[in-house]
């Protein structure tokens, strides 16, 4: 089932064309990753999908009553705003105390409910942001560079947790990441974005597409090789460059 469809999306901000003719769709239960260099419009695309930005042209169609859980890149809590983890988890919907505690247990932070949000470490804050997004029982979980600021074991943990969440709740996951090798191994589909969709398909297909190589070089090949054998090489569904797939 299609949760969300983006058709011919154009976004112009301050006279600058950020995104043009972007088409994509998200299916239930899949993990879709968007990769792209800085300034390629990844965050803009996510903003358009959550509704924070209006399309200049094109259309975004959501499944009726689509619930979105959004985990931002970072969260700045103003020093004037006192906010405990528990109070934050109750925004914008109030939940039963038992559910909040369960969410905290699941996030591996059972004792931090009364802690101030501003006193958490980067990893703890990331888990709390994820826990809050999951409390809404989303159909679609959106992660914007969610592991930025985490060390390698930390982000590996985080992605394992995401995989678990997907298994248990069946929600779709849309993420933006710069950690190409980790992302590639956990995604069902990858979209390479650079103002427009350069190429799209299974991780290994995208990784070897010339457009992708042109942007990221072949520096990630070593890491990718680890995962390459997991994927079916006969099934090339890179939309724009079928048949141009080269083995490294």
């Amino acid at each position: 089932m299609t949760l969300l469809t983006v058709e011919n999306l154009d976004i112009t901000l301050g006279g600058q064309n950020i995104l043009s003719h972007v088409n994509l769709n998200i299916q239930r239960g899949e993990i879709l990753t968007i990769v792209g260099p800085n300034g390629s419009g990844k965050s803009t695309l996510l903003k358009a999908i959550t509704g924070a930005l209006k399309p200049t042209a094109g259309r975004i169609t959501r499944k009726p009553c689509l619930r979105i859980g959004y985990v931002p890149q970072k969260l700045h809590v103003d020093v004037t705003l006192p906010l405990t983890v528990r109070a934050f988890l109750n925004l914008p919907t109030r939940h039963k105390a038992a559910r909040i505690q369960y969410a905290l247990d699941q996030a591996g932070l059972p004792d931090l409910g009364a802690r101030q949000l501003s006193a958490l470490s980067g990893g703890q804050l990331q888990r709390v942001l994820l826990a809050r997004a999951l409390l809404e029982q989303p159909d679609l979980l959106i992660l914007d560079e969610a592991t930025q600021g985490l060390d390698q074991p930390g982000s590996a943990d985080f992605y394992r947790h995401i995989e678990e969440v997907r298994q248990n709740s069946g929600c779709a996951v849309l993420m933006v990441s710069h950690e190409l090798h980790v992302v590639m191994s956990t995604s069902d589909r990858v979209i390479c974005l650079n103002g427009h969709v350069c190429c799209e398909g299974k991780p290994d297909v995208v990784a070897s597409a010339p457009e992708y190589r042109a942007i990221f070089g072949s520096g990630t090949q070593g890491a990718l090789a680890l995962y390459r054998h997991d994927h079916d090489h006969d099934h090339h569904d890179c939309t724009t460059h079928e048949g141009q797939h080269h083995h490294a």
Partner: peptide
């Protein structure tokens, strides 16, 4: 109050929650 608070904390989180 909750919508106001979430919008104050982060407009992006508010949009994602349909506020």
């Amino acid at each position: 109050r909750n919508a106001l608070l979430l919008s104050t904390l982060s407009p992006d989180l508010a949009y994602a929650s349909g506020i």
